[in-house]
């Protein structure tokens, strides 16, 4: 604790396990398990969620989590952006497969949460806020749904609509 460098990082605080309202202070575990502050204070800072930019942590090499435990598992990363919400009032959504597939396998989302076929999915912020679709992770373990512009990140003005759908491999 207290080893983090950088201004923003030093503002971050994580409740210790013995006072987080989840762990039983009487449990022997609170003396043995790592406190979040010890690990998370060393990672790229964010203002919400775990207060860690997890994708950045991976890309910078701050962490190097294992991709598989079975040697035979095929590890897939797909570098393909999908643009969504082209006609909404909010900026266009850019969904980057690469950052998602660094963490997740294709089968975590396809085909039960999202069809692979471009244009085949009907997205709904109502559903997402209910913990469905993107909301299975965003709002639970990935950055929360208060971070509108991290997904709605592409201005309508000047957007090349030929970049949209039907270009998957």
């Amino acid at each position: 604790m207290g080893l983090a460098a950088g201004g923003a990082a030093e503002q971050r605080q994580w409740p210790p396990l013995n006072n987080d309202g989840v762990h039983d202070p009487a449990s022997p575990a609170v003396k043995l398990l790592q406190d979040p502050a010890e690990a998370l204070s060393k990672l790229p800072p964010d203002t919400t969620g775990n207060q860690v930019r997890w994708v950045e942590a991976l890309e910078k090499g701050s962490i190097n989590p294992r991709t598989n435990v079975f040697p035979e598992t095929k590890v897939t990363v797909l570098d393909l952006d999908v643009f969504l919400s082209l006609r909404g009032g909010m900026p266009i959504v850019r969904f980057p497969h690469r950052q998602h597939t660094e963490w997740l396998d294709c089968a975590n989302c396809h085909e039960h949460l999202f069809k692979s076929k471009a244009g085949a999915n009907k997205f709904s912020m109502f559903q997402i806020l209910q913990g469905e679709q993107c909301g299975v992770c965003h709002g639970a373990v990935a950055f929360p749904l208060t971070e509108c512009n991290r997904c709605h990140s592409v201005p309508h003005a000047g957007f090349d609509h030929s970049r949209q759908t039907g270009k998957q491999d």
Partner: peptide
Amino acid sequence: RPVVFPHWFHRIRFRCKVCHNELEFKM
């Protein structure tokens, strides 16, 4: 006692796909 599973601790060491694909934990 109830189990507490901290995602933050595990994702430093393993990507989501290890538990949610290889080990078949539903999300």
